[in-house]
Simulated scan of single mutants.
Amino acid sequence: MTAHADATRRRVHDLLRAEEERILQRWTDLAKTSAEELRDLYRALRLALGDERDDLADVRGLLAELSRERARQGHTPSDTARVVFCLKEAVHEAVASDGSAEALKGFIWFSRLIDDLGLYTFEVYATAREKIILDQAEQLLELSTPVVKLWEGIVAVPLIGTLDSARTQVVMEKLLQTLVETGAEHAVIDITGVPAVDTQVAQHLLKTVVAARLMGAECVISGIRPQIAHTIVTLGIEFGDIITKASLADALAYALSRSGAEISTPRRTRIAVRTEEV
Results as ranks from 00 to 15, higher is better:
V170I: 02
V278A: 06
Q169I: 00
G240R: 11
K32H: 02
D54W: 06
V124G: 10
A184I: 05
G216T: 00
Q177P: 00
K149I: 07
L87Y: 02
H4T: 11
F110P: 05
D55I: 01
V210D: 15
V278P: 13
T168M: 08
I224P: 06
R9I: 01
Y42W: 06
E173L: 05
G183M: 02
A229D: 06
T275A: 09
V171A: 03
A57W: 08
L56T: 00
V278D: 09
L140V: 03
T8M: 15
I271M: 09
V95M: 09
E102G: 04
D98V: 00
A96K: 14
D14A: 15
H13G: 12
R258Y: 00
T168L: 01
T199D: 12
T269S: 07
L140E: 11
T275G: 08
G74M: 10
K245C: 10
E142Q: 14
A44G: 05
E185W: 02
T178Y: 05
R26E: 15
H13A: 14
V197Q: 11
A81D: 03
V180P: 02
A212L: 11
A255R: 02
L159K: 13
M215P: 10
L235W: 10
H4C: 05
A255I: 00
V278M: 03
G153A: 11
A31P: 04
L56E: 02
F239P: 15
A35M: 05
R43P: 05
D115L: 09
V233E: 13
V12W: 06
Q203N: 10
L49C: 07
L63P: 12
V147R: 11
D116E: 08
V233R: 14
C86I: 00
A44V: 03
T145A: 09
T265H: 12
W27L: 06
I224Y: 06
P226M: 06
K174E: 09
S259K: 14
R72V: 00
V83D: 03
R112W: 08
G118A: 11
V273N: 12
H186M: 15
D116G: 00
A251K: 06
A90M: 10
V91R: 04
A272F: 04
L47N: 12
A18C: 11
I228H: 10
V188C: 11
P195L: 13
T208H: 06
I114S: 03
E93A: 14
T145M: 09
T127S: 14
G74C: 08
R10Q: 14
L15C: 11
